[in-house]
Amino acid sequence: MNMLRTENITMKFGGVTAVKDFSLNIDKGEIVALIGPNGAGKTTVFNMITGVYKPTSGKIFLKDKDITGYRPDKITSFGIARTFQNIRLFKELSVLDNVLIANHLRIKSNFIEAIVRLPKYNREEREMHEKSIELIKRVGLLDVIHEKSSSLPYGKQRRLEIARALATNPSILLLDEPAAGMNPKETEDLTEFIKEIRDEFDLTIFMIEHHMQVVMGISDRIYVLDYGVTIAEGNPNEIQNNPKVIEAYLGVSEDA
């Protein structure tokens, strides 16, 4: 089943074309990676899909529903959740609050019902709490649940960000460099973790990653961007042997 599809999305900032005619097709349950040298436009692709930028042209479909041009919060409610390249947690708030906030989009009580604490609101609040605690337990942060999120070590902040994204009940999860700045052990754990949550939460995963170990280890398919243009697409094996990709990453040899 088709989960996420983009048709020739292009993003221009003034005269600069950050991404050109990017077409993507992700099926349900796949783990797909987007790689490319720095400044290739990978995060721009993410920002277009999640509604931070409106594509200059092209269309984006989630489960065959056109979601081009919706606001980020709408797109999240349709079922796309994301994490950020440079962690964007709610720093001053506790781990629990961070996850609880991601439940807010499904709240049905209005603010007056919330202030008066109607039984309807109390029930919703209780459900949110139970669900959040369950998630926090799942990602192994139960012992720090009341800590300020900025006080956590880097690896745990990454996990918390994923937990927060999961709390929005996504069907597809977009991870922007989840392994950035992690040591080999943490990277290995993360790879396992991504696979596990994919199975457990019935997710489709689309990620940007520089760590080739992670990318080659878990992706079903890989897209390669260079200067905003898709230069290759295929399974890890094909990508590793693709001359264009090698050229983009390592350059061309002089005597070739």
């Binding site: 999640t50 931070v52 919060d73 964007r88 720093k91 906030i101 807010h104 989009l105 994204a165």
Partner: peptide, 13 residues
């Protein structure tokens, strides 16, 4: 705390 993160977590800013 963070408008961009809040919006991406589904909060209608």
């Amino acid at each position: 705390e963070d408008e961009i993160a809040a919006e991406n977590m589904g909060i209608n800013l």
